[in-house]
């Protein structure tokens, strides 16, 4: 009798256990061609470019086959923080045998969510990713030091956000991928710095024309390994 009940308990897992596939997305930030190590002391080594903060929102994650969306994560906002190793991995549970050849996501909090009220979890304002002086999430924070940056203590600070036209900084990123157990996505900081003259552009704190340009540049850091 009891053994029967026990067996019954396992029945669902026997029936449904194999009915999902998994896909793990690993984000790998690269600086100077090697895995990013966050500089926490604040520009310790002289002469080198350092990154202290790399933190961004990722939402509306989708898998595509051609132009068709075959998988979509609803109402999910991930706060990805290079300082929190666990946040660099996104495990997805997919229907078995799902065919896909593309990955698409929004860099930032979608404007509908940004236009609504307060939320908890990754969207809680205690995460320091909501502007206080005005409405809106900071979609992307990139901070550090660089010898060519003329600001105080050679600091560059890019706080890219804004959800209202004409300065909406949310961006879609689409990458070609192949079905696998896991895929690695490079966040190529070198490509950002190659395209950014830190002696001229080193500070973005509000939505505007410069934040729009920087938002475009940030999307180009993402590529499949």
């Amino acid at each position: 009798m009891y053994r029967g009940l026990l067996w019954l308990c396992f029945l669902p897992s026997l029936l449904f256990g194999q009915r999902t596939d998994s896909l793990r997305i690993d984000f790998r930030p690269l600086l100077n061609g090697v895995a990013l190590e966050l500089e926490e002391e604040g520009g310790a080594s002289a002469g080198a470019r350092e990154v202290e903060v790399l933190r961004f929102y990722l939402s509306e994650l989708q898998l595509l086959e051609g132009e068709e969306v075959v998988f979509a994560e609803e109402d999910h906002h991930h706060l990805i923080d290079a300082a929190q190793v666990a946040s660099l991995q996104l495990p997805l549970t997919l229907p078995p045998g799902l065919r896909y050849d593309g990955l698409r996501f929004t860099l930032g909090v979608d404007s509908l969510t940004a236009a609504s009220g307060v939320f908890g979890g990754d969207l809680d304002p205690t995460n320091g990713m909501y502007w206080t002086w005005r409405s809106g999430y900071i979609n992307f924070k990139l901070e550090g030091t660089s010898p060519d940056c003329p600001a105080r203590k050679q600091r560059f600070q890019f706080h890219v956000g804004g959800f209202q036209a004409p300065f909406n900084s949310e961006r879609r990123v689409t990458l070609a991928i192949k079905p696998a157990r896991s895929i690695s996505i490079i966040i190529d900081l070198d490509s950002f710095f190659a395209a950014t003259d830190l002696s001229q552009q080193y500070q973005v704190m509000s939505p505007g024309e410069l934040s729009m340009k920087v938002a475009d540049r940030l999307t180009r850091m993402f590529r499949v390994e």
Binding site: A115, S116, G117, V118, P125, Y130, T132, W133, R134, S135
Partner: peptide, 15 residues
């Protein structure tokens, strides 16, 4: 500056 009554207090709290 703020459009949500829920998030508006962040401004005086942080200023």
């Amino acid at each position: 500056a703020h459009h949500s009554i829920e998030l508006q207090p962040l401004a005086p709290i942080s200023h």
